[in-house]
Design a protein around this nucleic acid. Structure first.
Lengths: 220, 220, 220, 220
DNA sequence: GATGAATGAGCCTTCATTCAT
DNA sequence: AATGAATGAAGGCTCATTCAT
């Protein structure tokens, strides 16, 4: 419960500020491309101060990655304790809400994945594999009657991850190409609605939430 | 097989080797994270030699990006001159074939997009926007009777790009998480088959190829 | 004695040390021929430290030039506020004293002039042109009855500058050829005495200081 | 007599072109500040070709220096074989003619002198010392009755060198400050006339040429 | 706890020099 | 004789990291 309590100490606040700035910059430039001084400057401290909190740039990177991924893992754990029906929609919505609240997270993850850096295995273990597994369970299990062949399910779940996370990861490009901010509340609402529709079509038998379904489309 | 034919001067070969090595490394580390010496070493030349062919690291990066994106633009142009029906499948297959032959391209593009680098606008202009437009035409036009609302089409096409390119961009992560090489011919064949199935479900009226359709699913 | 008074921060001292070393080396090798590492080594710091104080080698060069030329401009300004008679001698003596105290200055100026570098115009504006003008005023004005034709005066003043500054600029060569140090107090005293004699002959009506005149020559 | 005969071989011409370009550039940038490629480019050959004619940049520098200084030494030798009277004027005129024909020579010499390079001793031995000695002989000897004290003669001769060579060495600065080209025939003529007048005043007993004397001043 | 000063390793780039053609 | 291609050794400059204050 670190986020529930108020700022414990001034140094705790400084540490968070450093982590925030680092997240933002690592997400854009990667580990090698980000300068310690940039992070410190963005956090409003000197580069020397940063080394009081983190022993090295790499350790800071790891801390940023951990802090970002932990809540994702928690979301995955929370889902799945409930009823198996309609959980995929819940999972997606939970993820979207979290990603919208932490717009750098997707880019950070993608950056690390593409970089094939030293934390790739870690990333696969604590983020991607659990995500695929949970999604696989939700798709396979739950009495759903979708008609996807079993051997295509891994690719299906991977594609869902791509669509959900990709929207945030490629946000700069989408903004540039579409002329609107993919992270604005309005666009995020549209994107959420679209994804629900999207999953309805991929899993025709799967009706995540009655209200959401009736709101936007009456066909079928 | 365009590289077999010419084989002009020895310096031409060197230039291509440098471009190849640079593509590989830029795709993994981005512009800032890649060292010129690494590129030169990978190309089997000295760092000084590299500067005979390219005036700067940035210029080399640009050349790599251009060389990678030009064929994609050509693929987009070629499609669309034919019949409008079933063209989406053709486009996807063409793209997949090209991306499979140039496995670093997607990662290069994603890296640049995520980095929000100086070529983002260029990337949007010559890659992403044409891609979205062409796909939008193919989806909208062609007498198809899919029932997507118009305002969701941009997000739909974006999601298709995510699924097609994401497979290659996140290849290292997929390999690590799924325990198999996403770039192996076998997996690529599966991925192609999956994507065709996938589009059939997103556009139920759209029957790209009879054989592909009958192979795996008999519903509708 | 301006450097004895202040002695502010340690970094101020470092900056001055860098400027001193740079002046010495730039005066000998010019801008292009001097290595940043040499300057840093001579100043007792690392090359990186130098860049804390100056953004580039060129900026350091400019700073050295400015620091060296400012006092010369001040000397020129101070002279001329007094009586017009006998001022040329005062100017020369003031210049000689300053040049003797800053033995690298002449070489720095000559080096820049010969190099035809980017600061040549600056040098002409803040050093050479004022020098010529002030000397021209002193020679022309002041009721002197020398009989130089007007159109030879610019060349005359230029030649004076050559003789005054050239002694310091060509010091290495003079030392090598004459076997004595042109910067030693003794030789400097001789040179001053010679210059006074020299000007007496160029301007027979011009008796700068009675004492100086009587000290060394009773002939005529 | 290397300049009398026509171009012996094509390679001879190339060598001279390289020497010419090198002279020009060494005079402006010094040994360290000049790039071999620049010289080659200015000579219209490749850098590799340059190494056919000269084993290294330093050797080329030495050759340039030698080629430039040899005629000066010859001028010094030729003078002095004649009558001792009025020879100083002849020497000055000969020097001026040569320096005007080789405008880079003075700058080259000054550059080397200021740089305190490895050829300083050489320069002193074959250029400056003979020059001082010859001038000293001409001033002292020849039955002239000027009234300079003996211990000021070295400084006097040095000052003459400064005035004669300095005009060419500081040409860029003079051009910038005076707004006219010090190497133009017109200005060179003026400078020659000025120098004759100048020496007449430094050595009142010394009447180099009747015509020159009567042109501008009738005192004595 | 915080920082300004300092640094050594390393980065991008240039350069004198070599050599096969 | 001439050169284009190549390179190893700097050269200017940056950066992660340390430490006295």
């Amino acid at each position: 419960m670190p986020e529930a309590a108020v700022a414990t100490s001034p140094s705790e606040a400084t540490e968070q500020r450093i982590l925030d700035s680092a997240e933002l910059l690592f997400a854009r430039r990667g580990l090698r491309g980000t300068r310690v001084r940039e992070i410190a400057l963005a956090a409003g401290v000197s580069a020397g101060t940063l080394y009081i909190y983190f022993p090295s740039k790499t350790a800071l990177y790891q801390a940023v990655l951990d802090r970002g991924l932990r809540p994702v893992a928690e979301i995955l754990d929370e889902i799945g304790c409930g009823r198996p029906t309609a959980e995929l929609g819940t999972l997606i919505e939970g993820l979207l809400r979290h990603l919208a609240a932490h717009p750098w997270l997707s880019r950070l993850i993608y950056m690390e994945a593409i970089s094939e850096g030293p934390f790739l295995a870690h990333l696969a273990r604590i983020w991607f594999r659990p995500l695929l597994e949970r999604m696989g369970q939700l798709v396979k299990g739950g009495g759903r009657r979708h008609n996807w062949p079993d051997d295509e399910l891994p690719m299906l779940t991977a594609s869902i991850v791509q669509v959900v996370f990709g929207h945030f990861a490629l946000a700069p490009l989408l903004r540039e190409a579409q002329g609107r901010d993919p992270l604005s509340p309005e666009v995020l609402r549209e994107q959420t609605r679209f994804l629900i529709d999207y999953f309805d079509r991929l899993f025709p038998d799967h009706h995540p939430r009655q209200d959401a379904k009736e709101k936007d489309h009456e066909r079928t």
